[in-house]
Structures are given as structure tokens and as C-alpha cells.
């Protein structure tokens, strides 16, 4: 994964728990303190290790860490570093979700080393969508849920997100249901 992901986790932890906790997480994870370069690809294991150590040190589940991280990614990292990209993604949540597959195709072109997930989006009603999530990476469902909730907050709507199926249940990919009012 690109370094920006690791940087974002670092920022989340420091913001919520302070720098000493981050130091502790680094020690626990055995990852050296370093500057993660945004556009440099890092081993996925680093990210997983950071997430799991954060969960250990802070005393919550990895799922919760990933969920919070998903929201943080949209509401802090993306808004701070890629604000305009978010804005050009769509004028509201529905438009953004519809543009999501094409958005990620573009991301794939721009960051060839990224292997971003693929999406298929089904619009069931004006404010009711199914998001099919195809990713090579395992165990990021909660991150994905966090991202969707973060997006809802970004577009100032109150949404509920449900995971309808997942690879853990034996399906080939995940389906999320998002609805808001």
C-alpha cells in the first residue's frame, strides 16, 4: 500500500491518543520510526501490523481500528490532501457512489502500483445503494464500512451501512448496503 495510508494511521493515532502511544505502537509492531512517502508503495504487512498493534495498545478490536481509520481517511486525510479530488468525485453522496467505479479506474491509472479495489454500484432507490467491493486484500471490510460512513458524513447525511455478504462467509466478494435519508 502507498505510504500515505501508514501516515494517515499515524496521524489518527497521534490525534486521538498522543505521540507516546504511537511510539509504543511502533515498538510493539517492530516497525522502525520513519517517514512514509505518500506515493511510495510499502508492504501491505506494515499496514496490517500497524493496525493490529494499534488495536493491541489502545485496547480495541482491529475491526474498530479499521472502521475509525476509514472515517478518518475520508474526513481528515482525503479532505486535507485530496480535497479537490473528493469534490470532483461528485456533488452529493449518490453521485459520488455512482462515480465510484470510474473513480477507482482512474486511480488505478494514476497509481499503477496501488492495485486499488474495484467497485460495482447498484442504485436501488434515490438514497439506497448496494456497493459491490472486489479487493485483493483481505479483512478490510471494516475499513470499507468506515470509508462509506466517512463519505456520508462528508456529504452531511446520516447513513446506515450494512455488510450483506463477505469473503469470510464464503462469498467471492463483499456487498455493502448503504442507505440514508
Amino acid at each position: 500500500m502507498y505510504g500515505i495510508i501508514n501516515t494517515s494511521i499515524e496521524e489518527l493515532v497521534i490525534e486521538k491518543f498522543g505521540a507516546p502511544t504511537w511510539e509504543e505502537i511502533l515498538i510493539k509492531s517492530g516497525i522502525k520510526k520513519q517517514i512514509f512517502l505518500s506515493s511510495e508503495a510499502y508492504d501491505d504487512a506494515i499496514t496490517y501490523q500497524l493496525a493490529s498493534s494499534t488495536a493491541d495498545v489502545v485496547g480495541v478490536s482491529i475491526g474498530d481500528v479499521l472502521l475509525e481509520f476509514g472515517k478518518w481517511w475520508i474526513l481528515h486525510t482525503c479532505q486535507k490532501r485530496y480535497g479537490s479530488m473528493l469534490k470532483t468525485g461528485g456533488g452529493d453522496l449518490a453521485e459520488f457512489l455512482i462515480g465510484l467505479p470510474s473513480f477507482h479506474s482512474r486511480v488505478q491509472l494514476m497509481y499503477p502500483k496501488l492495485s486499488p479495489p474495484e467497485f460495482k454500484v447498484e442504485k436501488l432507490k434515490d438514497q439506497y445503494f448496494k456497493v459491490h467491493y472486489y479487493s485483493k486484500r483481505p479483512a478490510l471490510q471494516e475499513f470499507m464500512r468506515g470509508l462509506l460512513l466517512g463519505l456520508a458524513t462528508y456529504f452531511k447525511v446520516n447513513a446506515t451501512v450494512q455488510l450483506l455478504q463477505s469473503r469470510e462467509q464464503g462469498f467471492e466478494y463483499e456487498i455493502f448496503e448503504i442507505s440514508w435519508n
Binding site: 505518500s38 506515493s39 490532501r81 485530496y82 470532483t88 461528485g90 482512474r106 486511480v107 494514476m110 497509481y111
Partner: peptide
């Protein structure tokens, strides 16, 4: 208030701006 769907799929100008942005970030 232009968003990605306002560009034709073959039109790379928005993507070029994204790449530019990524470079700036780097």
C-alpha cells in the same frame, strides 16, 4: 462545481490534474 461525470470517459484532463496533484503531494 464540475465533477468527474461531467468529463467524457476518454477525456484525461481530470486524471492529468489528479496525477499532478499526486506529484505535488510526493
Amino acid at each position: 462545481a464540475i465533477v468527474q461525470k461531467d468529463f467524457a470517459k476518454h477525456d484525461a484532463s481530470l486524471d492529468l490534474l489528479h496525477v499532478l496533484h499526486a506529484k505535488e503531494m510526493a
